[in-house]
């Protein structure tokens, strides 16, 4: 069964990424262009997936929504990796008091339920997509710092790293030559399993009206926008949700396959 599922998931994610990248060129309409004369239309030849309550083309909005989703998750990924690696490496390489202090800070971040922390951060920073991205990254980086620190510590005692140190390589050079390659596998596994999770968080926070501002095309906002018309035009709610589901499912299946390939010992989907 795996032989079919994994290529299918990879194809799905590739297609969605392509849609996100090419949205400005392949979307048939401007996603924010309102046309009140043709509002709430069912799927037709002009509008393949129909129009919403302001007459905006659903297909175009869904394509642009993919762009918003992948963009946000990509930024979260970069922030989490940079921040997690920096803190984890410093803690692992410095040891002693620095390590103890950094790890207590990690503990503190891990003590708060992630979505509660994200909501609080948005309260402190203000609403908007950039702050949503920062809030989600801040509520997840500690797990990455922990992982990086663990790998760093286990590597420090290895012979080839000790040899490199004796040979006079600087800490920076050791980090670049020996640490980063060793980290790539575990980080890829953890991050690929988290991507879908973050996407759900972004959609949920947008749905609550904390992310992008309404005229923008984003799946969570689209669902929130369509609420008043939910009973008469359920497609307006169903389509963006199905888009989220497909994207997250694709990411999760790929993450699982990657985990099986790189690190069969790790337990699945622990959040």
């Amino acid at each position: 069964m795996k032989r079919f599922v994994i290529p299918a998931a990879a194809g799905l994610v590739a297609l969605l990424l392509l849609a996100a990248a090419l949205a400005p060129w392949i979307a048939p309409y401007d996603p924010t262009l309102t046309d009140l004369a043709s509002r709430l239309q069912p799927p037709s030849a002009e509008h393949w997936l129909g129009t919403d309550h302001l007459g905006r083309d659903m297909l175009s909005r869904l394509l642009w929504g993919a762009r918003a989703s992948f963009g946000a998750v990509g930024m979260i990924l970069v922030l989490v990796l940079v921040f997690g690696c920096a803190v984890g490496m410093v803690a692992g390489l410095a040891g002693g008091v620095v390590d103890a202090v950094l790890m207590r800070i990690c503990d503190a971040f891990m003590t708060v339920p992630t979505l509660v922390l994200a909501l609080f951060m948005i309260g402190a920073l203000g609403t908007g997509i950039a702050n949503v991205v920062v809030a989600i990254a801040l509520s997840h980086w500690a797990w990455y710092a922990r992982l990086v620190r663990g790998v760093t510590l286990s590597l420090r005692s290895r012979d080839h790293v000790a040899a490199a140190r004796i040979a006079g390589l600087s800490r920076l050079a050791i980090a670049r030559r020996h640490l980063l390659p060793a980290l790539a596998g575990p980080l890829a596994v953890l991050a690929s399993l988290d991507l879908g999770h973050w996407m759900l968080h972004v959609a949920g926070l947008s749905f609550l009206g904390l992310g992008l501002a309404p005229p923008a095309a984003e799946w969570g906002i689209m669902i929130n926008d369509a609420r008043p018309f939910f009973r008469s035009a359920p497609l307006l709610v169903l389509l963006p949700g199905a888009a989220i589901l497909l994207t997250v499912l694709g990411c999760n299946l790929l993450g699982d396959a990657l985990r099986d390939r790189l690190d069969p010992g790790m337990p699945d989907h622990l959040h």
Binding site: G196, A203, F207, G241, I244, L245, L249, N252, L253
Partner: peptide, 12 residues
């Protein structure tokens, strides 16, 4: 089922 379940947005 579990793959589907962890990929569903709860609000949707």
């Amino acid at each position: 089922i579990s793959f589907l379940g962890v990929s569903l947005p709860n609000f949707w």
